[in-house]
């Protein structure tokens, strides 16, 4: 059970993440690796925490019939991620204050928060599918960025782009190792606090049926 104290802590952590992302905006965005792999995930994490706190206060949020099975929420997450995967959007965030402001709103509230409200409602197969897909697509991005003969972002150097590709590859491999490892050695994994599919037998899970 989440205690009130824990909830406060999570709320504070979310705020802190937002503030840090904003305060160290220039530093984080100077390098595409920290921009894409530190700032954006941190913003999404903040949204995840906010949604967690909010759904404790308003349990209806987590049980919204519109989001049965988590499909609607995950689709929002999908489009949010697609938008922020466009090199145009990243370039835009660096040159236009409006797009930058949009990033601070949409990444937490259209990626992190709906993910938190939908992930555990999704069927384990859907979750497994999304995870495998994420690995595959991280690999694709890594490959494209390492091999592309063109600069995809006007605001970043080609060598930074290649470094970003390598970073994507490392993230993909680490995630694969972590998820794969848990499937081998910790079959009871997937408790409510982390991003792993719940692999317990049908019936003992909380996903929507």
């Amino acid at each position: 059970m989440t205690t009130g104290f824990q909830r406060c802590g999570e709320f504070a952590l979310a705020l802190l993440l937002l503030l840090l992302c904003a305060a160290f905006r220039r530093t984080l965005e100077a390098d595409p690796v920290t921009h894409m792999l530190v700032q954006l995930p941190a913003l999404a994490w903040a949204g995840w925490l906010f949604a967690g706190v909010a759904s404790v206060r308003r349990p209806r949020l987590e049980a919204a019939p519109t989001n049965a099975g988590g499909g609607a929420g995950l689709l929002i997450v999908f489009f949010g991620i697609v938008f922020w995967m466009l090199p145009r959007s990243i370039d835009g965030a660096l040159t236009s204050p409006e797009i930058e402001a949009a990033k601070f709103l949409t990444v937490p509230f259209l990626v992190g928060a709906p993910l938190r409200l939908s992930w555990y409602r999704a069927h384990p197969i859907l979750r497994g599918f999304l995870l495998s897909n994420a690995l595959s697509m991280l690999g694709v991005l890594a490959w494209l960025y390492m091999a592309a003969p063109i600069r995809v972002c006007n605001s970043y150097l080609v060598e930074d782009q290649q470094r970003l590709g390598l970073a994507f590859l490392l993230v993909a491999l680490s995630l694969a190792a972590i998820w794969g490892g848990r499937l081998f050695f910790k079959p009871d994994g997937g408790s409510a606090g982390d991003l792993l599919p719940d692999l317990k037998a049908n019936g003992s899970t909380s996903y929507d049926t």
Binding site: I125, L183, F184, F185, P187, N202
Partner: peptide, 24 residues
């Protein structure tokens, strides 16, 4: 490919829950 991915995910899920981990 997606068809087979779903197939194996379900097979894996069922075997993991029945035998407690892929290693087993």
């Amino acid at each position: 490919g997606v068809a087979f991915l779903l197939f194996y995910l379900e097979a894996g899920r069922a075997m993991i829950s029945a035998y407690g981990g892929l290693g087993n």
